[in-house]
Simulated assay, not measured.
Amino acid sequence: MGGRTAPLLIIVIVVAGSVFFFFRAFSLQDFPPFAKEVLAALLGSVLTVTITAVLLRYQTASEINRDKSVAVFQEKLKMYEGFCAALSEMAQNGTLNGDEEQNLRLWAMRLSLVSGEEVSKAIDHFFMQTHRYRTFYFDLLEDAQRADLQAWHREFYARSRPEREPAQCFMSIGALIAHLKHDLGEVEVSSLKDVASAKHAVDDIMRIERIG
């Protein structure tokens, strides 16, 4: 915002300075008082019009950016809600079949249009994980898969994270939704503890739905 308003501020300063020096030079000349008053009124009008134009332009730009942000947020929220509904349906039996993988791939591409870097990485992790192990739940992994998950996680993040237990390496549905919540700005009105609570709540709901 500051980068866009700097040129406008420079224009105001230049116009105000020009008006001041021009009027000062004019006032030193021997002109009738009436002429000086007319010129002062004229220069004041020029300065007022310039400042008003600058403020209107700044206000218009702010409103455009605000409307754009609201539209993007609404579209993102709508898309995230649709993804959560689709994901809940796909994960009912716990495993991933070919049709569900195609659907998940389509949703990943759609979400990439509106999601931030954090969600994009989380979706990439989630998709690659479900493609590799064909399940949405850690407790359905066999021992060999859990060991492989740990090695894959280390390779996926190029050793940028400390060594983790297999369960910590698994991107659960709750963890993915927590990333979506974070991306929507929920941490500004809640705490990271609340986001973590939402993750556990979603995982518990999905576990009960699958068992039930």
Rank of each mutant, 00 (worst) to 15 (best):
F26I: 05
L140N: 14
E81C: 05
H125Q: 07
V54F: 05
E165Q: 14
Q59C: 07
K76H: 05
M128G: 06
E63Q: 11
T52H: 04
Q74T: 08
L43P: 02
R164L: 15
T5H: 05
T48P: 02
F136S: 01
Y80K: 04
S172A: 10
N103K: 14
V119I: 11
V114A: 08
F22Q: 10
Q129D: 02
V119S: 06
N97G: 11
G98N: 11
T60D: 12
R207M: 03
W107P: 04
D143M: 06
C84K: 08
Y133M: 00
A61P: 02
I64H: 08
T135Q: 04
L8N: 09
A86C: 08
I208N: 02
F83H: 01
F83S: 04
A91N: 03
P33D: 11
I208G: 00
S190D: 12
T135I: 02
F20T: 08
S18R: 04
I177A: 06
F126W: 00
V38K: 09
A175Q: 10
V70A: 12
M90K: 00
S112T: 07
S160F: 05
V12I: 12
K181W: 12
C169F: 05
S197K: 10
A122D: 01
S120E: 08
C84A: 13
A178T: 02
E188T: 08
E209L: 14
K76T: 15
S69H: 05
G185K: 02
S172F: 03
A178P: 01
T95G: 03
E89C: 04
A144E: 13
A61W: 07
G98E: 14
A147M: 12
L9Y: 09
N103T: 15
E155R: 07
L8H: 09
R110N: 15
A198Y: 14
K199G: 01
V46T: 03
P166G: 06
I10V: 15
H131D: 09
D99V: 06
V46D: 01
G116E: 04
Q59K: 09
P7S: 14
P32A: 15
E37S: 14
S112A: 14
Y80G: 06
